[in-house]
Design a protein around this nucleic acid. Sequence first.
DNA 1: GTCTATACTCTGATAGAC
DNA 2: GTCTATCAGAGTATAGAC
Lengths: 216, 216
Amino acid sequence: MKDMNTRERILETAIELFAKHGFNDVSVRDITGAVGIKESSLYNHFKSKQQLLDEIFNYLDREFSGMSIPEDEAAKLIEVMDPAQFMDMCIMNFKMYFGKPRLIKIWRIVSIERFRNARANEFFTKNLVDYPLLYQSKVFEAMIKKGIMVNADPKVLARAFYSFILFIYMRYFEVDSSEYSITEADSPEAVNPVDSPEIQEMIKGHMDFLRRAFTV
Amino acid sequence: MKDMNTRERILETAIELFAKHGFNDVSVRDITGAVGIKESSLYNHFKSKQQLLDEIFNYLDREFSGMSIPEDEAAKLIEVMDPAQFMDMCIMNFKMYFGKPRLIKIWRIVSIERFRNARANEFFTKNLVDYPLLYQSKVFEAMIKKGIMVNADPKVLARAFYSFILFIYMRYFEVDSSEYSITEADSPEAVNPVDSPEIQEMIKGHMDFLRRAFTV
DNA sequence: GTCTATACTCTGATAGAC
DNA sequence: GTCTATCAGAGTATAGAC
């Protein structure tokens, strides 16, 4: 925080507090108090409290702008991976993605605000649920055609895999996140719930189950 | 609403509005305005706005008080059911449970408030996630012992089944619930998203997949 | 039990001096 | 760009007449 300018410090503090208490339960006074400036000073950097949330979502937008599905990516992937390897990769990506303290906080804001905020709802539905399912079902479809995966509806298989990941997110990131994900902005190495032994074992168990079920 | 006394009308209206906008975004004025009384009149029936939420959660508590696990229920169940029939029963229960308009609204309140409210968080974690998983894994364990289910960790199997149910809840009850579940208090037959053809097909697909994967 | 009137607090936001 | 001072509005809640 020390090396940030005031605007950045306001934004980081807002992310921290919104992730902890939700947008509505954090006042401009709370934010500026934590930053160490007066309320009115915030308005030299942001035109309103709402703009803080907008900027946070803009950042998420930018993070996701690079995530489109190249039509031929599935074809490339199946040349070097079997279903189990692909799923391991997905979990690695998930861990890396939600291992970034800043992103995990922003996703928690999305989770909290999705019932009130249309943009948060869209992020959640599209980027956290529907897009991954679509991507995985395309890869699975290609693997079925190649004959290295059981012949079934690829969408069903994608849901069998990814609904478990969402379960982990819902149960251990959203619900228990006060325990894990909300860390001081100054401590870069946040404890990732996925790294805990119990969840590692849950994931391993599920992967073993799916490896068997997905085999031809 | 016509045949209710004022206290009941206030409570039903509060459930309706909290489910739509969340506790914080509904004012006492909103509630009393919808009921057709003055703000101050509410305090003849409830000592505070907070008490409204408490009463709603008390109702949920009562609904769940009858739901304990008899130690021998799993034994009884497996005498008459195979894994597929048991899972169908679970889904039926889920549909019936979330088909009641009042309960679906209250669960939406739980989903919204669980990030802020410790009691809501506990309801969600215990009654919606952990308890069903425990119950199912016990039944699956008995079925494995009986030899009518694949020999695997029953907890893994329960998660494979129930994380999909939670996915349906998360994706179609929570996220899209403005479309389906929030109905006028006067219309008793709320449209249940689970009854839609798409979701019926998702469930059927997943059940076919699991029937095969759970077979010895 | 319902009303009118009002108290008090907190909110986001602005004006203008420095 | 930060401060002091201030504002209007909305929030929950209470007192007391009817």
